[in-house]
């Protein structure tokens, strides 16, 4: 192998990488928050919601979990305009990530809800709590605490999957890498550096989610 690695372009192009990183972080933040919310809503619908809603949610979850994220993205960005729904690339990317995480989040949260012993619903009711109060305090919060590790890794997976949004010209970190390689012809180096940034981001995100889990669900005494 007689190839001379050259990272000189980093001096000139680091703002491009930084901007791409900012977009990736932003997409992950929006996708993470709304995706988890959607997942919780769908888990409620599937486990405790009205009968007519259940098959709809099940169909949504199965459709998303059994098709590639890239195709969901293309369908939203290229396909929906023929129905009159025209989205910008960032909006489409955000929407695709929310819908994707929502489906996986639904399955994960549902597993946590189903692990709640039935007696706890009854105990909640016997304390005079409303259905919503029981769901929130007795079912959902302990369930989220239980499945937080699984949910965290799913959020990291969605963050890594967001690399595909560069394909609809959303200017994320991968888009920045593509841009740099087309300018400098230093393809390997450009992808190497951005891969390293993704790795650092994944590690940081995992730690942040662990910290968030600790502060959201402080260990209660007697547990």
């Amino acid at each position: 192998m007689n190839y001379a690695f050259d990272y000189g372009w980093l001096l000139e192009y680091w703002p491009v990488l930084l901007k791409g990183l900012a977009i990736t972080v932003e997409l992950t933040l929006v996708g993470g928050v709304f995706g988890v919310a959607l997942g919780v809503a769908c888990a409620w619908a599937r486990a405790l919601g009205p009968k007519w809603l259940r098959p709809i949610v099940t169909t949504y979850v199965e459709m998303i979990r059994n098709t590639p994220f890239l195709i969901q993205l293309f369908f939203i960005f290229f396909g929906l305009p023929s129905l009159g729904v025209r989205l910008g690339e960032l909006e489409a990317a955000n929407l695709a990530m929310i819908i994707n995480l929502g489906a996986y989040g639904c399955e994960i949260v549902r597993a946590g809800i189903q692990a709640t012993p039935k007696g706890q619903f009854e105990a909640g009711a016997s304390l005079g709590m409303s259905r919503i109060q029981t769901f929130w305090y007795v079912v959902l919060i302990p369930a989220l605490q239980r499945i937080w590790p699984a949910l965290s890794s799913q959020i990291v997976i969605v963050m890594l999957g967001s690399a595909a949004v560069s394909q609809i010209a959303a200017e994320d970190l991968t888009f920045a890498a593509n841009f740099i390689q087309s300018r400098t012809f230093r393809a390997f180096e450009a992808y190497f550096v951005s891969t390293a940034i993704y790795l650092a981001l994944a590690i940081a995100l995992r730690q942040m989610l662990r910290g968030l889990g600790w502060s959201l669900f402080p260990k209660r005494s007697g547990r």
């Binding site: 990291v156 890594l160 595909a164 991968t174 390689q181 992808y191 951005s194 790795l199 994944a202």
Partner: peptide, 23 residues
Amino acid sequence: ELFQGTPLLMQLFLAFFGLGLFG
């Protein structure tokens, strides 16, 4: 950690351009 902590798309790019480095 390396393969689960980085996007598959990046791994594809690196394989595509990385193998090319060997001529």
